[in-house]
Design a protein around this nucleic acid. Structure first.
Length: 776
RNA sequence: GGGCUGGUAGAUCAGUUGGUAGAUCACUCGCUUGGCAUGCGAGAGGCCUCGGGUUCAAAUCCCGACCAGUCCA
């Protein structure tokens, strides 16, 4: 894809708009030798990402060669000038020309092959066909292929087959395989670029797209009966492109690792999926049909496509019908589409209105990063906000929280002191959010500002540490590691990085060590402003770990001789030594393909280490062992604890047996049943249950209780032969009522408890009374 | 960014309206057989992921954390 852009400012500067854009396009096509009589410009509305505008499709001979978009509208909250599909838009001050020329389409048009694939990568197509043991239909069925190519996009597949009189057999054996070959060739190229650009297969965002492409390729290779691993195909595609994209070859190892990992993951999912599908099918065996929402659920939560479920259903021979409508996937998509919503924050809008007329604030925190105090003039006050002509207060941005501090008026006026709680930057104007009435200070007044230096330094340490940790992670894990978000704090900070598997404990230690070595090297952290294009040329797009700034000139933060270079607006230490120790606290996986590293720097790191030390010291003190013996001791204790639990279980059984005999001797006869009602010492509910169950087998009805601390446990059992006369559950309920608790269970065995320990004798009598009355 | 599902023995999974934690395979030991395959029997193996809450009582219900899987934008 090629293109050109123009950013026009309404009333300031118009570079070019529709007429000129069309003229440029005409000239370009003419130079390429296109017959201009065949070119059509088709106008249509375009919208996307909250913007809209007219759009021209440039078509020749049925082929769309380019799209010219003229973006001049933006979505509004409350009414506007233009309504498109029920939403209101208004004109933007900056209106943009955005063009896209299909480079490959020109190649296709010039070569005259039936498909773009045969024009762009014929060698790859050939290789895949050879591997699949097939001939290209271009050689065997050239006419039909040309016809199909002409009609596809206009008609549905089935309609084409009908119109061209093709048998289903012909479609399945000749047409579908070549379609798969085209798709695989396209996917291998796509994957080469995606992975080289640092995209890691994942279950979210662009990584998910990568995974879809990968899995689709696996499926198609299987139907084509090609056994060659996908990574080998991607690599051979890279070799074919070596003249145009030599840089791709450096990613070969990573591509191999990622794709073979994805292969095993996919196979595991399939095996697991098959099991789940079989289980689900079993559930519907009685009905003989699996409802649609069930198959949607299987796909949505476990990723098993409905076609696979159908296949499994027919193999299993259970005779469960699975109904899959043609619009299955769009139903799934529709279901999810209803979940999203996004709105413009009205507070931000009102701030933007207010700051529009104010000049940009002079940023002293960049020029004098080590200073604490400054003097400035108040330009405006509104709500809780004060705007100054210049400031040392760093506003929230780039994952670095705002500075706090105080603003004081000079003695003579009221001598007010206002605490600055938050600082934000709106279009270059810095707003100081203060506690108390902002308008207590007059416009034009001179104020003295003082920032909280401890906080500022902690942020600076953590910010520099973030760059160092990222550099260390890239060094240890590989160049594919990219920052996916970060948040700095006073005590600890975090950085999210892309990586295709979990970070091991060894890797974590290695990153930590490397980061601290960088600190000890005490390298200079240099800051300079550079022209954007120049910087990109010099350092590459790795600059934009924290996002791409909009400005023409960017602020570059460089560590040492260029170990790490980033575009960054944060406040930093001047040398890596100032950062102090860096302690990696933990790693978590916030998404498949994204690892979050938590760390502390400087004093916070020392505190974190001390806190951990304290934990170990306390644990060791409890067990009365030296710290280094802790793991072995804990393991021994745990094993012993398990052993004791088992011994306890066994002893309980033995005790139950012994008590059985004693209890049998104390049985009474009630309505012809042998009844045992006793309070036992040193038994818990489990122990009582054992005894009760055994006595029930010997045809005794039992009511057993035991007292522990402030709680009474109650168990009752009824022998099977009496269970129609009386329910153990009823007995327990009555007994526990007296004890101020509750209980229940089955007619044969039940348990419960209560807290009124004093009522224990009364409860026992109540139990006996129930037995007497109920069992008549 | 949003949604859904799961976490129980070494593995794969059951676990009824909350009420004594189970099956199959694998493992150990015995029996069967000339030996193997097979068959029969017994045994061992569980902080039911973790932390709170509700309850007389939680694997089960509620909240949170961690881990894993999956879909959508």
């Amino acid at each position: 894809m090629m293109g050109h852009h123009a950013f026009n400012k309404r009333g300031v500067e118009e570079l070019y708009w529709k007429n000129d854009t069309v003229r440029y396009c005409d000239e370009y096509l003419k130079q390429l030798g296109v017959d201009m009589d065949s070119v059509t410009y088709k106008e249509a509305p375009w919208m996307g990402g909250g913007n809209a505008g007219p759009c021209l499709e440039v078509v020749t001979g049925g082929l769309e060669l380019a799209t010219l978009v003229f973006m001049d509208l933006e979505l509004t909250q409350n009414g506007g000038e233009t309504n498109i599909e029920g939403q209101w838009y208004k004109k933007m001050d900056t209106y943009i020309v955005d063009t896209g020329y299909g480079l490959e389409r020109f190649v296709w048009a010039s070569k005259g092959t039936p498909t773009v694939y045969d024009a762009i990568f014929p060698e790859m197509i050939h290789e895949l066909l050879t591997l699949a043991g097939r001939e290209h239909p271009l050689e065997t069925h050239r006419e039909q292929l040309m016809d199909i190519a002409r009609l596809s996009g206009v008609m549905k597949k089935k309609e084409i087959a009908k119109k061209l009189n093709m048998t289903p057999y012909f479609v399945k054996t000749v047409i579908e395989p070549i379609e798969s070959v085209y798709a695989v060739a396209d996917h291998t190229r796509c994957l080469a670029f995606m992975i080289a650009d640092g995209i890691v297969p994942s279950n979210a965002k662009e990584g998910y797209l990568a995974r879809l492409v990968i899995r689709r390729s696996f499926r198609m290779l299987k139907t084509l009966t090609i056994d060659t691993p996908l990574e080998e195909l991607v690599i051979s595609h890279i070799k074919l492109m070596r003249n145009s994209f030599p840089e791709l070859e450096q990613y070969v190892d990573r591509i191999s690792e990622i794709l073979s990992l994805e292969k095993t993951r996919y196979e595991e999912t399939l095996i697991k999926g098959e099991r789940i599908a079989k289980q689900k099918l079993k559930e519907y065996r009685a009905i003989g049909k699996m409802p649609l929402d069930a198959s949607i659920n299987i796909y949505d939560t476990h990723g098993i496509p409905p076609e696979v479920v159908v296949e499994i259903a027919s193999e299993s021979g259970d005779g469960v019908a699975v109904d899959i409508p043609d619009d299955f996937y769009s139903q799934v998509a529709k279901m999810h589409a209803e979940e999203k919503k996004g709105e413009i924050d009205p507070v931000v809008v009102s701030q933007k209105e207010r700051t529009k007329t104010l000049p940009k604030t002079l940023k002293l925190y960049y020029d004098k990063p080590t200073e604490i105090e400054f003097e400035a003039t108040v330009l405006d006050t509104f709500d809780d906000f004060i705007v100054l002509d210049k400031t040392l207060f760093y506003p929230e941005g780039g994952g670095q929280p705002a500075d706090t501090g105080v603003l004081t008026t000079f003695a003579g006026s009221a001598g007010t002191e206002l605490r600055v709680e938050d600082v934000l930057s709106v279009d270059g104007v810095i707003l100081h959010k203060v506690a108390g009435a902002a308008n207590s200070i007059d416009k034009g007044a001179l104020v003295r500002g003082k920032i909280d230096y401890q906080r500022r330094m902690a942020h600076a340490r953590h910010h520099s540490a973030t760059h160092i940790v990222l550099w260390a992670a890239r060094s240890v894990l590989g160049g594919h590691v990219w920052q996916a978000g970060a948040q700095k704090g006073e005590d600890r900070s975090r950085i999210d990085i892309t990586h295709f598997k979990r970070i091991s404990r060894e890797e974590r230690s290695e990153i930590e060590m490397l980061a601290n070595k960088m600190v000890m090297r005490d390298e200079v952290i240099g800051v300079h402003i550079e022209e954007k294009n120049e910087a990109e040329k010099k350092y590459g797009f790795c600059l934009y770990q924290g996002g791409v700034p909009a400005s023409k000139e960017i602020r570059i933060v460089q560590i040492g001789a260029g170990e790490d270079v980033q575009a960054c607006a944060g406040t930093h230490c001047s040398k890596t030594g100032e950062v102090g120790p860096i302690k990696l606290l933990r790693t978590e996986r916030i998404q498949d393909g994204i690892e979050r590293l938590w760390y502390s720097a400087g004093e916070a790191a020392v505190r974190a280490i001390q806190a951990r030390e304290e934990l170990i010291a306390k644990s060791a003190a409890v067990l009365r062992v030296p710290q280094e013996k802790l793991p072995a001791t804990v393991e021994r204790f745990f094993d012993e604890w398990k052993q004791l639990k088992k011994d306890n279980e066994r002893l309980r059984e033995e005790l139950a047996e012994l008590r059985e005999g004693w209890l049998k001797g104390r049985a009474k006869t009630i309505n012809g049943m042998n009844v045992i009602a006793e309070v036992l010492q040193d038994a818990d509910t489990k122990g009582l249950l054992k005894i009760a169950a055994q006595l029930a087998e010997a045809e005794f009805l039992t009511i057993l209780m035991s007292k522990q601390d402030n709680h009474v446990s109650v168990v009752s059992s009824v022998p099977a032969i009496h269970k129609t006369r009386i329910s153990a559950s009823v007995v327990v309920k009555r007994v526990c009522e007296v004890l101020g608790g509750g209980g229940g269970g089955t007619p044969e065995i039940a348990q419960g408890g209560g807290e009124k320990v004093a009522n224990i004798e009364e409860a026992l009598l109540a139990g006996l009374r129930v037995v007497e009355e109920e069992s008549l």
